Simulated scan of single mutants.
Amino acid sequence: MDPLSRYDPIVDDPTAFHDACGRPLPSVVRVNGIKATPDRVRRAFESAGVEFGPVGWHDGLFRLGGDESPGNSWPFVHGWVYGQEEVSAVPALALDPDPGERVLDCCAAPGSKTTQLAARMDDRGLLVGNDNNLGRLSALRSNAERCGVTNLVVTRADARNFSLKSFGGEAFDRTLVDVPCSCEGTIRKNPDALEDWSMDHVEGIAGVQKGILDRALEITRPGGTVVYSTCTFAPEENEAIVQHALETHECRLLEYELPLDHVSGLTAWEGDSFDDSMRRAKRIYPHHNDTGGFFCAKLEVAG
């Protein structure tokens, strides 16, 4: 059975959903605000003969035309742009860090969201990019250097046990929890993403996700913000994880603006019910915006 068929009851148009999942994903780049502006990138692409077009909901994103690859232009080499899937830009926008704050990216490598956070922070304050994979951390460092990020500290740790000891014991203002997942929403970019899909894997990775979100809530200050996101459709990895957080921590779900077409988080799934505030979470389906799939929820730690 196609694993995606289990979501037919919760999508508005199952046929359009499956058709979109079967099409290749458009290439998108994000303007790196540390080094460039959208206008500067437009002029650079035009002079380099790069085919591109605007993304309607975000002026710092461009879709590349034809067979253009994000890494095949000099603006990429010089760190003016970063190849980033369109919906992958959502979590950093939801977290909305300010310059000078203390921010943690729990699962940072290879760096698309980390470098986006740095730009939104105007490269000021403390940004910690953590990952437990040494090879991926190498990519994070390389990407941060290319993008001119200077406020980043790179750490290697299991995010479920992240320690504040190296940071004076002081909690973070904002934490991004973009967790490892079953990656169902990446099927357009990785057609073999679901070859080894199983409910056992979904349920197993959900345990890891709970642990990472638990720790993020513990090390974020009262009144601080935690954003939880995945690139999967599975409620077991999305609403159920956030529900666990609501039941075990002093926190609440926040509403946030998202000009990209989306639907609300689920309040029920296969016999399980979730808090009514789960409607404040966002689900993004491939057929709504010609993107990948995504889930994003914004939490505030009680203060």
Rank of each mutant, 00 (worst) to 15 (best):
P3M: 02
S5L: 15
R6F: 00
Y7Q: 00
V11C: 12
D12F: 12
F17W: 05
G22Q: 08
V29F: 13
N32H: 05
K35G: 04
A36G: 07
D39L: 12
A44S: 10
E51H: 09
S69G: 10
P70Y: 13
P70S: 11
V77P: 08
H78Q: 13
Y82A: 02
Y82V: 03
S88Q: 04
D98M: 15
R102Q: 15
L104K: 07
C106D: 02
T114Y: 08
L117H: 06
A119C: 06
N130A: 01
G135W: 01
L137A: 04
S142E: 14
N143C: 08
T150E: 15
L152K: 04
T155V: 05
A157K: 06
D158T: 02
R160V: 11
K165P: 08
G168Q: 00
E170C: 00
D178T: 09
P180N: 12
C183F: 12
E184Q: 11
P191E: 05
A193S: 10
S198E: 08
S198G: 12
I205Q: 15
V208M: 10
G211L: 03
R215A: 01
A216C: 11
L217P: 04
T220R: 02
G223M: 06
T225L: 02
T225V: 14
V227Y: 04
T230Q: 08
P235N: 07
E239Y: 07
A240P: 12
I241W: 14
L246A: 13
T248A: 11
R252E: 10
Y256E: 02
E257D: 14
V263D: 03
E270F: 00
D275T: 13
R279G: 11
Y285R: 01
N289K: 08
F294S: 01
V301A: 08
